[in-house]
């Protein structure tokens, strides 16, 4: 009887801890995403000897739909990426053509940066595609954080072996995220910095992605403008609308 009771307590404790971890992730995701958003972003790829900057407009609705319009540099201006559920299209303005991207492109670098296509269009959801485990607490750059281990679910469209996420205890902000491959080796670290008011919420306005094995390389993504709950007309996230964006 005692044993059973103990087992029940332990099970319940384990369950509630998982619930806690999931709840923390959920709250941090909600902060970040909202039902829909519209933004202006600047991406800088930094390498030891050079750097390149690109500007874009972004729209998203849940994790299912997103659209990116490149506005700078001139060479890529007018290029559009559309993601609808698990499909991705690319509008190439010079050729006036919509190209459907093969699924294997998801894990690839997005326009030469340290972000992957998946990071950009968020095919995988850290809430739905992972199981969550609270590992403890840690202080990162002065923020007291929950340390949470994310393990991908078996059939999730995820390219990582595991992800460690540090979420601030006070505001549920994603302060740092570490991406590991299937051999448990650290591949990328993403830091959320410059916390400020964006679209009525306090958020990291700057995301820095640093690959572990390439010193001097990093990609900085800066939100110049961000608005939440911007309702787009029905049919906004369609291949028909891609060529109309400007």
């Amino acid at each position: 009887m005692n044993k059973l009771f103990l087992a029940t307590i332990l099970l319940w404790a384990g369950f509630s801890q998982a619930q806690d971890a999931t709840e923390i992730i959920r709250r941090s995701e909600e902060k970040l995403r909202g039902e829909s958003s519209t933004g202006v972003m600047e991406m800088t790829i930094e390498r030891p000897t050079w750097s390149r900057t690109m500007k874009m407009k972004t729209w998203s609705k849940g994790t299912e739909y997103s659209m990116i319009l490149v506005t700078e540099p001139a060479r890529d201006k007018g290029t559009v990426f559309l993601k609808r559920e698990t499909e991705i299209w690319n509008w190439v303005p010079s050729v006036e053509r919509t190209v459907k991207l093969p699924p294997s492109m998801m894990s690839q670098s997005w326009m030469g940066s340290d972000f992957t296509n998946d990071d950009l269009v968020q095919e995988s959801s850290i809430l739905k595609d992972y199981t969550h485990e609270l590992l403890g607490e840690e202080t990162i750059r002065g923020f007291k954080c929950h340390k949470i281990k994310l393990t991908p679910k078996p059939d999730a469209p995820v390219v990582w072996g595991k992800v460690i996420s540090y979420i601030s205890k006070e505001e549920y902000l994603q302060i740092q995220t570490e991406f590991y491959d299937e051999d448990d080796e650290l591949i990328n670290t993403m830091e959320g910095m410059d916390i400020k008011e964006l679209g009525g919420r306090r958020l990291p306005s700057k995301l820095v992605m640093t690959p572990a094995d390439e010193p001097g390389n990093r990609t900085i993504m800066r939100y110049l403008d961000l608005e939440f709950d911007t309702q787009q007309p029905e049919g906004f996230y369609t291949t028909q609308n891609m060529k109309r964006l400007r």
């Binding site: 190209v99 459907k100 991207l101 093969p102 699924p103 294997s104």
Partner: peptide, 11 residues
């Protein structure tokens, strides 16, 4: 057509 077979793009 433009689609995929598994991870392969197929057009």
């Amino acid at each position: 057509w433009a689609g995929n077979i598994g991870q392969l793009g197929f057009k």
